[in-house]
């Protein structure tokens, strides 16, 4: 029961929905340790993605849809998260190539490439209090689930769970990248908005596979 274009488009739609639903929450998180636009930025981007999704031709591949998300986010989100999340989808598209169906290994490769894309642009490490703190545990959990013989839905569920824990685990940290790094100790006690939105997007991926 591998995942195809329907899963990708449902993931995208579900991402747009949860980002819209959590727009104010993400703005609030970003207001506390950033500049208060993260929810607005991603919501603008995913709304644009939804607009463009209809342009996908009949028979489009998963990679085509991921590339569409990438270019649309890059050209509509702006801020730090636009190039970072955009690059994640761009690299994810590269990883799936021309595949029509993604099996568990392909899903892990997709997530790994996405995470590597964020690192390539943003140079953050785990513990820097950025979206990487959601992505890297998610990638690790996905790989572990694959090794444990989980199916695609199980892999994505493990990734989503780990991302949520990773986002939560940013709370006690001092930030070393992005705007929150200017706060020093004062960032402690606040969740990183980018890790939170990443967890939402990864939960959307899992829900799309389960639903």
């Amino acid at each position: 029961m591998s995942l195809g274009i329907d899963w990708v488009t449902e993931w995208i739609r579900e991402s747009a929905r949860v980002i819209a639903d959590h727009r104010v929450e993400l703005i609030t998180l970003d207001r506390e340790i950033g500049d208060g636009d993260h929810g607005e930025n991603l919501d603008r981007g995913f709304s644009a993605v939804i607009q463009k999704l209809g342009d996908l031709p009949e028979g489009a591949l998963p990679g085509d849809a991921l590339k569409l998300v990438a270019t649309t986010l890059i050209s509509t989100v702006g801020g730090a998260s636009g190039p970072l999340v955009g690059t994640a989808y761009l690299k994810a598209a590269g990883a799936v190539g021309k595949a029509e169906q993604l099996d568990g290994a392909a899903v892990v490769a997709l997530l790994t490439a996405a995470r590597d894309g964020v690192v390539l642009r943003g140079k953050a490490e785990v513990g820097d209090k950025t979206m990487i703190d959601a992505w890297t545990p998610a990638v690790d959990a996905a790989a572990a689930a694959l090794a444990d013989g989980a199916d695609e839905a199980g892999i994505l569920a493990a990734a989503a769970d780990a991302a949520e824990q990773g986002a939560k685990a940013t709370e006690p940290l001092v930030a070393r990248k992005g705007r929150a790094s200017y706060l020093g100790e004062r960032a402690i006690g606040h969740r990183d908005p980018g890790s939170q939105s990443s967890a939402l997007i990864l939960r959307a991926a899992s829900d799309a596979a389960a639903g």
Binding site: D35, D37, N41, S75, G78, G82, P83
Partner: peptide, 11 residues
């Protein structure tokens, strides 16, 4: 000019 307090995109 990007959106308020948000970098413009590359385009």
């Amino acid at each position: 000019p990007g959106p308020v307090f948000t970098s413009p995109t590359p385009d």
